[in-house]
Design a binder for these strands. Sequence first.
DNA 1: CTGTTAGCGCGTTCAA
DNA 2: TTGAACGCGCTAACAG
Lengths: 336, 336
Amino acid sequence: MRVRLRDLAEGLGLSVMAVSKALRDAPDIGVATKARVLAEAAKRGYWPNEAARSLRVKQSGLVGLLLPDLASEEGAMVSGSLAEAAQEAGIALLVGVARSGKEEAEQVRAMMGRGAEAIFFLPRISTEHRSAVLEVVGRAGLPLIFFKRYPADVDGGKGKVSWVVRDMGGAANLVLDHLHDLGHRKVAYLGGHPAARSSAEHLRGMEEGVAARGMVMLGGVQMVGLEAEGGEAEMKKMLGKKERPTAVVCVNDAIAAGASRALLAAGVSVGGEVSVTGVGDGALACYGPVPMTTVCFPSLGRVGFSLWRKVREGKEEMKPEIVKGELVVRESTGKA
Amino acid sequence: MRVRLRDLAEGLGLSVMAVSKALRDAPDIGVATKARVLAEAAKRGYWPNEAARSLRVKQSGLVGLLLPDLASEEGAMVSGSLAEAAQEAGIALLVGVARSGKEEAEQVRAMMGRGAEAIFFLPRISTEHRSAVLEVVGRAGLPLIFFKRYPADVDGGKGKVSWVVRDMGGAANLVLDHLHDLGHRKVAYLGGHPAARSSAEHLRGMEEGVAARGMVMLGGVQMVGLEAEGGEAEMKKMLGKKERPTAVVCVNDAIAAGASRALLAAGVSVGGEVSVTGVGDGALACYGPVPMTTVCFPSLGRVGFSLWRKVREGKEEMKPEIVKGELVVRESTGKA
DNA sequence: CTGTTAGCGCGTTCAA
DNA sequence: TTGAACGCGCTAACAG
């Protein structure tokens, strides 16, 4: 069925080694022989057995990505950019989804078993303190790169562990600058749970930014989930209160979309009476309830992959990357 | 660094075979020995080298997924459900993105080189006639399962090639039933390019369904792209014409979201004056411009994976799967 | 129940 | 420039 080096060698009356060298474009092989081998290989549809190859050379050319969900926008963005970067570099990508610490450990073991040279990891939102992945991978001495979130028990840069996260504090300040310019002073906040590091960073950015600009923050809400449903529900509650903000800053696009939906349902014009902002610049930002002012970030997957490559080639040490965002102004914000 | 069977064997004063058997839970190994081996393996953090294993047993427990883009909603849905199904079955998933026939062939060769036991393939929208993947994979005699679209030069079910597609004609009829019940008679159509098989199926369902119900189709538009931008632009054009439909049927959610945006921008209430429908039930359907009436389909990845498993275990022959959708009614449709 | 032999497909080493 | 021997880590088949 499958053609081996030996099959080619026998067909050509050569040794296995000669064929191997020809196919790998080794220096010590005759030009004529090489041409014959290449032709035969193409004709018979040969392709190398990577299992055998990596057993021998002890390099697999393979990395693993572990995440809670590929179908979510978050997972899709990270995996998409990582897959592209890997493809361009000729590195294969093994993907595993896991919804619990147990599954994470299993998947990571499977990846290591298959020879993954590094593990890229987008942790679940609730995994902030300890991580089975960190233990398993760390013990093996494999490079481990966290995306977006990372557990508390990790020494960044030390050894082979690092992370690529978004500058959420900076994102808060970009938005506050914009809102301040538009004349907003009273802003409400819809954030994530502060146990999550990136949510905490965003909240810190908000608190400091609001204070520095002489603005006030009305009823900051820290939600456990980060979904549109939550934003919609919280916004509804907020509309019942006496004092209304002129702007609502949200920690992500989904929550902002939910909040916009609630405002529109109550007959409040988004971008007119009340401004709303998100973070992420995903599909909902462009074609959600209202074209959304938000903060756009470069693809973390690409950043993480190129970090690993540099480390692999010895060009750089492992170090955390804090990626800066950019403000994208659309119609969900307007003059106060 | 990495612990091998031999290391465990030496540490325990056993043969490599005994350790191998103990770890694989073979029947012919002593209980006490097994316990000792398991303890030692856990202590030293052993995990098997799958490259060596699959070289020996000639099974990799690995499948490949090839798609044009992981970050798109389409890619995310397919890959997410396939990854979940694979994870549950203990099969590893290799993911490759490719934007051209050349890249597709390269990626597929890499996957086969790594021992992929099957290739799952979500083709680019424009690949409808010939496919390099089909040739490369077909030649190797590997199972090949297309998602959503498949090229013209393929014999479904024959041999090891199959596909999992959505019943788009059925989707059109579900929507038309609903609109007809609401009293709509004049519908406009925003479809995809008819060279794409699923778009053609949807169009056919529309034409037959409209005729069968005594409805009329105003200005059917076949767009080349399937993005929201296109839907928005086409809807704007349509609003300029004298005769207006009471409902706009779209071939997917993105186009429907774009069309809704254009209608709202023109002051037309969606679900009131004009009804709009999509297909897909993705994020834009729930939190797009208007909560959308659409057609929801089961995850194709799961369906495709379980098809392959049954074939692999000899329980079933390869056969195409046409997946039926379900109508989801939201606020974008109302009485005519 | 445990160990020995052999070899999966490939590449490194070194001799011809 | 070419090839023979050997071994990567594992397991099937058999022997003890």
